[in-house]
């Protein structure tokens, strides 16, 4: 039987404080919650330039969580979002469960994004932007991840943690900072 003692709050607090986490949520992400998280992030970041960039990347991050988190019935914790601060950067960290058979495709895309410079990313973005008509367009077609890389200006850090044969936990850290 699970029995969480009262120290749990202390330990979690220490962990968050140590990593300078300004904003976090773990659970299911609804549109209303996203609106609240965005406005909290806005008021937390004083520097307007950085705030704009964080805001941009954050929206794409949160959209990815709602769109791509694996929905398992009864699962209360499909995803996590953190906004924190490293020495030089604000960082956005997300984690979500995905099906193991999606790992390869996602990883290939992340490797490609990380290998491109700004000009190449923009070319790729424009290629997708102009490729099909809006009426046949359903998903983001990968624009979101390129957009995040452009706004961030930094390489993505990511990891895939195997949960079992069928499920993995995907983590992504996106850094945003002043140049």
């Amino acid at each position: 039987m699970k029995n969480i003692n009262s120290q749990f709050a202390y330990e979690t607090h220490q962990l968050m404080e140590g990593a300078d986490v300004r904003l976090s949520f773990s659970g299911e992400f609804s549109p209303d919650l996203i609106t609240v998280l965005l406005s909290m992030a806005k008021s937390n970041i004083g520097d307007k330039l950085v705030m704009k960039k964080v805001y941009n990347v954050m929206i794409e991050c949160l959209e990815n969580l709602t769109k791509h988190s694996l929905k398992i019935e009864g699962d209360q914790f499909p995803a996590i979002f953190l906004l924190g601060k490293d020495d030089e950067y604000y960082f956005l960290a997300t984690g979500n469960k995905i099906a193991s058979n999606e790992v390869n495709e996602l990883e290939t895309k992340l490797i490609k994004v990380n290998s491109l410079n700004k000009k190449e990313l923009m070319l790729w973005y424009n290629e997708i932007l102009t490729s099909e008509t809006s009426s046949s367009f359903k998903g983001g077609a990968g624009l979101g991840i390129i957009d995040m890389a452009l706004k961030s200006g930094n390489r993505f850090e990511y990891n895939f943690n195997k949960i079992d044969d069928y499920h993995s936990f995907f983590t992504l850290k996106v850094k945003v900072g002043q140049k």
Binding site: N56, I59, E60, E63, L129, G140, L143, G144, I146, D147
Partner: peptide, 9 residues
């Protein structure tokens, strides 16, 4: 601000 989903439209 517009998200990447809006960009195409």
């Amino acid at each position: 601000y517009y998200n990447s989903l809006s960009a195409k439209f």
